[in-house]
Amino acid sequence: MVEKAYKFRFYPTPEQENLLRRTLGCVRLIYNKALAARTQAWYENKERVGYKQTSAMLTNWKKQEDLDFLTEVSSVPLQQGLRHLQTAFTNFFSGRAKYPNFKKKRNGGSAEFTKSAFKWKDGQIYLAKCAEPLPIRWSRQLPQDCVPSTITVKLDPCGRWSVSLRVNDTRNLLLKPVNKQIGIDLGITSLLTTSDGEKIANPKNFNKLYKKLRLAQKSLSRKTKGSNNYHKARLKVARIHAKIKDSRLDYTHKVTTQLIRENQTIVVEDLGVKNMVK
């Protein structure tokens, strides 16, 4: 059994988008308030605040008059946001990540729904407090007899909605063994060079995208911050960033898939790519 995630684009109705944006806003608010409370407790009293304490804080926040809107959205994404904050602190204390940052509205956001906060019926997803199913564009089918265990709704900075379905795949996905080993040398002028002498070049279409990005950022810097034109220019920059990210992800996914299917053993040198670029 393998745990996999399937990501799809979806286009919410105005009512669904209103509810989802309020949910993302509440998740962001709770995350930031809990992070501020944990930071303040440490600097003032040298006290570590965990998930249980922040969960109790959430209960008290919902009782406040100025925060009564927290009860209008599902409580599950709010609790999951606190769990994600706890994971971020665990990674920080283990030396695997930096100190958690506050979430910003312009970066979009995400909300995680567990089984108690959504319904899977006839191949459609019904989120809590939402009567209609999510209008998902099913670019591929889920494996047969697979039911999502967790759903994550995400809004990226350029305004695209996506949903990620986590399922337990019971199929046998093991590849047939092959008698071939290969070594990979990371490069700068080229993406990588294999021990067979094959060079895989960097994608060429990035030069055009970087030129568009430079012009869009230059236009953004001339706009008055907070104006409508500034908002339009910021979205244009975000869309170009998203296109670069999608192109890079697609290209690397195709290259790595080919390497895995054709080789049994892959050896990669242990180098810091950032140091090589410097």
Rank of each mutant, 00 (worst) to 15 (best):
M1S: 13
M1T: 08
V2E: 14
K4P: 01
Y6P: 09
K7C: 07
K7N: 09
R9G: 03
R9Y: 05
Y11P: 00
P14W: 04
E15S: 13
Q16A: 11
E17M: 08
E17P: 08
L19T: 08
R28I: 09
K33Q: 11
R38K: 12
Y43W: 10
Y43M: 12
N45C: 07
E47I: 04
E47Y: 11
K52H: 12
Q53F: 06
S55D: 14
M57V: 02
M57I: 02
M57W: 08
L58A: 12
T59A: 12
K63Q: 10
K63N: 09
E65T: 09
L67H: 00
D68P: 00
L70V: 03
T71S: 12
V73A: 03
V73N: 03
S75W: 02
P77E: 06
Q79G: 08
H84M: 10
F89T: 03
N91Y: 06
S94Q: 15
S94E: 15
S94C: 02
G95S: 06
A97W: 01
P100M: 03
N101T: 09
K103R: 14
K105Y: 05
E112W: 00
K115T: 13
K115Q: 15
K115F: 04
A117I: 10
F118N: 02
K121G: 00
D122A: 13
Q124H: 11
I125Q: 00
Y126E: 02
L127D: 03
A128L: 01
A128I: 02
K129P: 01
C130F: 06
A131D: 14
I136K: 02
P143M: 05
P143N: 05
Q144V: 12
D145Q: 13
D145Y: 10
T150F: 06
I151Q: 00
V153T: 00
P157S: 01
W161R: 01
W161S: 01
S162P: 03
S162G: 12
L165R: 00
L165I: 05
D169M: 01
L173I: 10
L173C: 11
L175H: 06
K176V: 13
V178M: 02
V178F: 08
N179G: 08
N179F: 05
N179D: 15
K180R: 15
I184C: 11
I184M: 08
S190N: 15
S190H: 15
L192N: 02
T193Y: 05
T193I: 13
K199F: 05
F206V: 14
K208L: 11
Y210H: 14
K211M: 06
K211T: 15
L213E: 04
R214G: 08
Q217A: 09
S219R: 14
L220K: 01
K223A: 08
S227M: 04
S227E: 06
N229M: 00
N229I: 00
K232W: 13
K232A: 11
A233L: 09
L235M: 10
V237P: 04
V237M: 05
A238T: 01
K245V: 00
R248T: 07
D250L: 05
D250G: 00
Y251V: 06
T252I: 15
V255M: 12
T256Q: 13
T256G: 11
T257H: 06
T257K: 10
T257F: 02
R261F: 02
T265D: 11
T265E: 11
I266T: 07
E269H: 03
D270N: 13
D270P: 02
V273P: 04
V273R: 03
V277F: 10
